[in-house]
Amino acid sequence: MDVFMKGLSKAKEGVVAAAEKTKQGVAEAAGKTKEGVLYVGSKTKEGVVHGVATVAEKTKEQVTNVGGAVVTGVTAVAQKTVEGAGSIAAATGFVKKDQLGKNEEGAPQEGILEDMPVDPDNEAYEMPSEEGYQDYEPEA
Rank of each mutant, 00 (worst) to 15 (best):
M1D: 00
M1E: 00
V3I: 09
M5R: 04
K6W: 09
K6I: 01
K6N: 03
L8S: 00
S9F: 10
S9Q: 03
K10R: 05
A11I: 02
A11Q: 00
K12Y: 11
K12G: 03
K12N: 01
K12L: 06
A17Y: 04
A18K: 00
A19H: 07
A19M: 06
K21R: 11
T22R: 01
Q24Y: 15
G25L: 10
G25P: 00
G25A: 06
V26F: 06
V26M: 05
V26C: 15
A27W: 09
E28W: 04
E28K: 08
A29S: 06
A29K: 12
A30N: 00
A30T: 10
K32D: 00
E35Q: 01
G36N: 13
V37F: 12
L38A: 11
L38Y: 15
Y39S: 07
V40P: 00
V40W: 09
G41D: 00
K43D: 00
K43N: 14
T44I: 13
T44D: 00
K45W: 15
K45R: 13
E46T: 01
E46P: 14
G47N: 07
V49L: 15
V49F: 13
H50G: 13
G51Q: 14
G51H: 10
V52E: 01
A53S: 15
A53N: 07
T54F: 04
T54Q: 06
T54P: 14
V55W: 13
A56S: 01
E57C: 05
K58P: 00
K58L: 12
K60Q: 13
K60M: 02
E61N: 09
Q62N: 10
T64W: 10
N65A: 10
V66H: 03
G67Q: 13
A69I: 11
V71H: 03
V71L: 05
A76T: 15
A78C: 14
A78Y: 12
A78E: 01
Q79E: 06
K80A: 12
V82W: 12
V82E: 05
E83G: 03
E83P: 03
G84I: 08
G86N: 02
G86K: 03
G86A: 13
A90S: 15
A91T: 08
T92Y: 04
F94Q: 08
K96Y: 14
D98L: 09
Q99L: 13
K102F: 00
N103W: 10
N103Q: 14
N103S: 08
E104C: 01
E105H: 01
E105T: 07
G106E: 11
A107F: 01
P108F: 12
Q109N: 01
E110Y: 07
E110L: 14
E114H: 13
E114V: 10
D115R: 11
M116E: 01
M116Q: 03
V118D: 13
V118Q: 02
P120N: 09
N122P: 10
N122H: 08
E126P: 11
E126A: 07
E126K: 13
M127T: 09
M127C: 11
M127H: 05
P128G: 10
S129W: 05
E130A: 05
E130S: 03
G132S: 03
G132M: 10
Q134L: 15
D135I: 14
D135Q: 10
Y136F: 11
Y136N: 02
Y136K: 14
Y136G: 04
E137K: 04
E139F: 15
E139L: 04
E139Q: 08
A140W: 15
A140Q: 15
A140L: 08
